[in-house]
Nucleic acid binder design. Structure first.
Lengths: 356, 356
DNA sequence: TTGTATGCGTTATCAC
DNA sequence: GTGATAACGCATACAA
C-alpha cells in the first residue's frame, strides 16, 4: 500500500494510516479514532496501534486531514513589507513569540508580506480564500484588497496587533501608546523642558495620532500650549526610521527657538537623530534630551544610553494568539475588541534637565 | 452546491469548482483544465470559465489540490530559536527576501523554530513527514532529531543558509566569512596594529572556525604569530551578542599587553563592547580599533560609526530559494553543493592607526 | 468497542 | 475538445 520505492533499504517517508491499520490488525477507522480521541477505543488495541504507528514512523497527512475536516491548522501573519523592517526591531521577537504560542496549541505559522505589489496582495487573498489558513494576525493598518475583496470578506478570523483596528471590527492587541508617551513627556516637563521636537512616522497613522495625542495631553496637563512642540517627519513609513531621524536634524536646526527635548516615535529615528546631532556639535543630554519608542535592546548601548518605551511584544504576541484562537474555535464568549498591554518607560542617560 | 449560508447577502467564501462549472455550463474537469493548463481547451469555453470564476470569486482549495497531486507548495524555513534573534539583526531581511522569491514562484512560506524544546522539534518533524511542506531552508548548523529521525530522512529537499553544511550533504548558501575577515584583519595590520582581540560566538561553530581561521591567515601573511590574537567569548550563542561583548570588556582589561584592535564576530558584540569600553575611559578608534560582522544598518549611527562586514543577505535568500526550488522540481542538473555570495567590508571611523 | 462506507475538492485517466 | 469517474489520505455517520 505504501507507494514508495524502497531505495536500498533507506527509510522513505510515507507510512499511511492504512499501513498502521494492517500492522495493528485493525480497521483504518479504528486507527483514526485511537490517534485522535482520548477515549473511544479499547486500551489494548490502542496500545497496539500506537506501537504500530511508532514502528512505521507514521505521521498523519495534514492536507488530507484538513480537506476532510474542512479547516486547516495554519495561521497566517501579515507583515508590513519593505526592504527591511529595521524600524521596529521587534519583528523577530514577535514572530518567535507568536510561533511558540501557536505550536503549543497545534497550529502552524505561515508568513505573508504586505507590500504594495499586486502579487503579494493576491497571494494573501489566495491564502485566505483558498482555505489554506484558518486565521490571520495582521501587523498593518490596512488590509490588502483586490477586486473589492479583502481577507475580512473570507469570514476568516483576523486580529490586529500593534494597530488598533477595533473600529474596523478587528479585535486588536495594542499597547498604551498614548499613555506611555504622555508619561514620557510628563517626565521631560518635570525635568524642566519647555520646547519639544516630535519626530513622526506617517502622518495620520494610528500610532501618530495616539502618540502625538499623548504628547499634547502632557503639555496641557503641564500648563504648556501646543506651540511648545514642533513636528518633523510625516512622509516616510516607520521602516525608514534612520532616514527620518536624519531629516529631523535638518528640521531641528532650522527652528528659531531650538527645542531642548526630542520625542522620537521609533528607536531608529532616535538613534540616527542622536548620531547626527552629536556630529553637529550638540551634546546629549547636555543640549538635548531624547526619548523614543520601541525598546530595542541596542538602545542600552548607545552613547549616551537611550531612554525608550519598551513594548512588551512577546506578551502582545501571546495575547494576539489567544484572541485569534478563541475566535477560531468559535468560543462564543465574545472576544475582547481591544486588549491593551502596557508599555514600560525605561529611563536612561539620554534624559536630563535642560541647561540654564 | 455551495454549502455556505448566505448571511444577509454577505458574500461568504467558498465558491467551488463545481459552482464555476455550472455557471459556465461545462463539466468540472473542463474547469480544472482551463484553470491549470495553458492550451488543452477551446478559447471560447476558456473565456466563459474565466468569467464565471471571476464572477464567483473562485479560489482553488489548496489542500484539496495538494492532496490530489501529492505535494504541497509550502516551503518551511527553520530559524534558530532563542529569546530574541537580535544577534544577527538580519533575520527580518532574510525572511522578506525569501518570501518574496517564493511567492513569485507560487510557493508559500511557513516558519518553524528550532530551539532545544521537544515540542518544537516534533513540530518540525511533523511538518516534514506530514506532507505539509515541500522543502526547507535551514538556518542552523544542526538538524532537529527525534527517535533517530531527522527531516533529512523525509526525502525533503533542504538547503542550508549561512552555515556550510555541504559536508552533511546539504546544498549550502554561505558568504565568504573567512576571506572577508582575513581582508578586514589585513586592513588592520596595514594600519599598524599588532595585537588583536577576537570576540567569538560558540567555539567550534562553523562561523567561528571560518572567521578565526581568516584572522590567523591574515596574521601569517603579515608575518605575525598566532600569539598576536587573544580570544574572548566562546560559550554563548550568537543570539546573546550584547552579553558576549560586555564580557569581552573584562577579558580585554585583564590582558597584560592590551590589544589595539578588536575583531568582533557580530555587530551586537561590537556595539556593546564599544559602549562599555568607552565608559571605561578608552577611546575608539584612538585607543582601540573595532571591526565586526553582519552589516546591520545601525552601525552607521554608532559613535564612532562602526566598520562592519556586510553580508548580502537578500542575495543569499534568493540564491537559497533558487537552489531549493531546483531540487524540488527535480531538475536533474545536479545542484551546486556550495554557493558563495561575497561579503563586503564597509570601512568606517571605528578603524584608525594605533597610537605611538 | 470496532468495522464499513462515504465524501472533503481537486486532478488525472480514460472514454467519447 | 469535452465529460464521466476514480483516486489522493483521512474522519465520521452508521451499522454491527
Amino acid at each position: 500500500m505504501n507507494k514508495n520505492k524502497d531505495v536500498a533499504g533507506e527509510e522513505q517517508s510515507g507510512a499511511l494510516m492504512a499501513d498502521v491499520a494492517r500492522l495493528a490488525g485493525v480497521a483504518i477507522s479504528t486507527v483514526s479514532r485511537a490517534l485522535a480521541n482520548p477515549g473511544r477505543v479499547n486500551e489494548k488495541t490502542r496500545a497496539r496501534i500506537n506501537a504500530a504507528a511508532k514502528q512505521l514512523g507514521y505521521t498523519p497527512n495534514a492536507m488530507a486531514r484538513g480537506l476532510r475536516v474542512g479547516k486547516s491548522n495554519t495561521i497566517m501573519i501579515i507583515l508590513p513589507g519593505s526592504p527591511y523592517y529595521g524600524a521596529s526591531q521587534i519583528i523577530p521577537q514577535v514572530l518567535q513569540s507568536i510561533n511558540k504560542s501557536l505550536i503549543q496549541q497545534g497550529y502552524n505559522l505561515m508568513i505573508a508580506n504586505l507590500d504594495r505589489e499586486e502579487v503579494s496582495e493576491r497571494h494573501i487573498l489566495d491564502l485566505a480564500f483558498g482555505g489554506t489558513v484558518r486565521g490571520a494576525i495582521i501587523f498593518s493598518s490596512k488590509l490588502p484588497e483586490i477586486d473589492g475583496r479583502s481577507p475580512a470578506d473570507s469570514g476568516l478570523p483576523i486580529v490586529s496587533m500593534l494597530f488598533d483596528m477595533s473600529d474596523a471590527g478587528l479585535p486588536s492587541v495594542v499597547t498604551n501608546d498614548r499613555e506611555a508617551i504622555r508619561e514620557a513627556t510628563t517626565e521631560l516637563i518635570r525635568s524642566g523642558h519647555r520646547r519639544f521636537l516630535y519626530i513622526a512616522g506617517p502622518t495620520g497613522n494610528y500610532h501618530d495620532v495616539e502618540r502625538y495625542g499623548g504628547v499634547l495631553e502632557a503639555l496641557r496637563a503641564g500648563g504648556l500650549s501646543e506651540e511648545a512642540v514642533s513636528r518633523s517627519g510625516g512622509e516616510l513609513e516607520y521602516q525608514h526610521g534612520f532616514e527620518i531621524g536624519i531629516r529631523a536634524v535638518d528640521d531641528f536646526m532650522k527652528l528659531a527657538a531650538r527645542p531642548t527635548a526630542v520625542i522620537a516615535t521609533s528607536d531608529d529615528m532616535a538613534i540616527s537623530f542622536m548620531s547626527r546631532i552629536q556630529r553637529a556639535g550638540l551634546s546629549v543630554p547636555g543640549d538635548i534630551s531624547i526619548v523614543s519608542f520601541d525598546g530595542s535592546p541596542v538602545c542600552e548601548f548607545c552613547s549616551p544610553p537611550l531612554s525608550t518605551i519598551e513594548q512588551p511584544v512577546e506578551e502582545m504576541g501571546r495575547a494576539a494568539v489567544g484572541l485569534l484562537l478563541d475566535a477560531v474555535r468559535q468560543t462564543e464568549n465574545a472576544v475582547a475588541m481591544r486588549t491593551i498591554i502596557r508599555s514600560r518607560l525605561i529611563l536612561r542617560e539620554s534624559i536630563a534637565s535642560p541647561k540654564g
